[in-house]
């Protein structure tokens, strides 16, 4: 019989505050990068740090930033959504087309329904048929890109409704305009952040992305969680479609062609692991801002905008390298 001598004793639990938790989490790196970029551009250019420009940066971030929130949910389950930009574009042309009759609210709801149907399609293929999300969403992307043009006969619809472009408006606080779109983006981040960190659903999303087999063994209905993630992401994409109509008041079937990859970039720079189970929406919000700050700041500094792509690429590789380090250091 073994003695129990060297088991026992639980060391006193440390009382880590929320601040320590935030700093030790994945948010710390992206936040530091954002602050550093802002400090550098503020110091080296005259035009970066002024209220109008900061407001513009936030506005320029909302569409990809909102798409990236939905993308975060999917990536947390170790999936990927290549079709989110195309879903948003199809929803926006559906809204633009139906809104020409004047029933704006109905058009918006039809846009939401479009997103939900396509989210359901992705979700069912991934969860019920266990198909790889990369392939499923690649196929859906291809179909939707064509579908949007077929639906519109490759025309764009001008958006005249004030309600549809309302998200680009907003009150000004001391010269800084905060658009309703930016508020919506931050609000969605807060709601999803709450759902991910404070509810059982959130814990299960992380668990399913982290170790689906272990999650299933504890009785979690993995397929149902996956489906819920794709549907929730679809609702977020519908908000992104509304945001997009405000940013450019034209429903263009060939717009936002790289929004899917841009959203993945924001998620990765924001510290969410492509292997699932690690990360969060606050990091993604920061990641989307970093990309815009980089583009905006380099333009202010008079540097060729191609260097923005270089900078973004370097950040993506750094983010993936950090994630790789984090995941392998503990494998002992």
């Amino acid at each position: 019989m073994t003695k129990l001598d060297d088991a026992v004793l639980l060391e006193k639990e440390d009382r880590a505050g929320p601040w320590r938790a935030a700093l030790s989490s994945q948010i710390a790196g992206p936040l530091a990068a954002l602050v550093l970029a802002i400090v550098i551009f503020s110091a080296t250019t005259d035009s970066f740090l002024n209220p109008g420009n900061l407001s513009l940066i936030a506005q320029q971030s909302v569409v990809v930033g909102t798409l990236a929130l939905g993308q975060t949910l999917v990536i947390l389950t170790a999936g990927i959504d290549l079709s989110n930009g195309a879903i948003m574009v199809l929803a926006s042309v559906v809204i633009g087309n139906l809104a020409t009759d004047g029933n704006v609210l109905g058009a918006l709801l039809a846009g939401l329904a479009t997103c939900l149907v396509l989210g359901l399609l992705n979700g069912v293929l991934v969860s019920q048929f266990s198909l790889p999300p990369f392939i499923v969403t690649l196929g859906v992307l291809s179909v939707l890109t064509a579908a949007a043009r077929l639906y519109t006969d490759s025309q764009s619809y001008p958006i005249t409704s004030e309600f549809l472009t309302a998200l680009n408006e907003g009150p000004a606080f001391g010269g800084v305009t905060i658009t309703y779109g930016v508020m919506l983006w931050i609000g969605l981040t807060a709601i999803l952040g709450y759902a991910l960190t404070q509810t059982a659903w959130g814990v299960r999303v992380y668990a399913v992305g982290d170790n689906p087999r272990a999650a299933a063994l504890t009785g979690i209905k993995v397929k149902r969680v996956l489906l819920s993630v794709y549907l929730t992401a679809a609702v977020v994409y519908a908000f992104a479609a509304w945001q997009a109509l405000g940013r450019t008041p034209t429903a263009d079937p060939s717009g936002y062609a790289t929004a899917n990859l841009d959203s993945i970039t924001a998620v990765v720079i924001g510290g969410t692991s492509l292997f699932g189970g690690r990360g969060g929406v606050v990091g993604t919000l920061i990641g989307a801002l970093i990309v815009t700050v980089l583009a905006n700041g380099l333009t202010q500094a008079g540097i060729d905008s191609l260097y923005q792509q270089v900078g973004t690429g370097v950040l993506v590789v750094i983010a993936v390298a950090v994630d790789h380090f984090v995941r392998t250091r503990q494998t002992r």
Binding site: Y206, A207, G209, D210, N211, A215, G277, R278
Partner: peptide, 10 residues
């Protein structure tokens, strides 16, 4: 179970 039935990121 034999395989470690835990979620490492949690």
């Amino acid at each position: 179970y034999q395989e470690l039935g835990v979620a490492p990121a949690l």
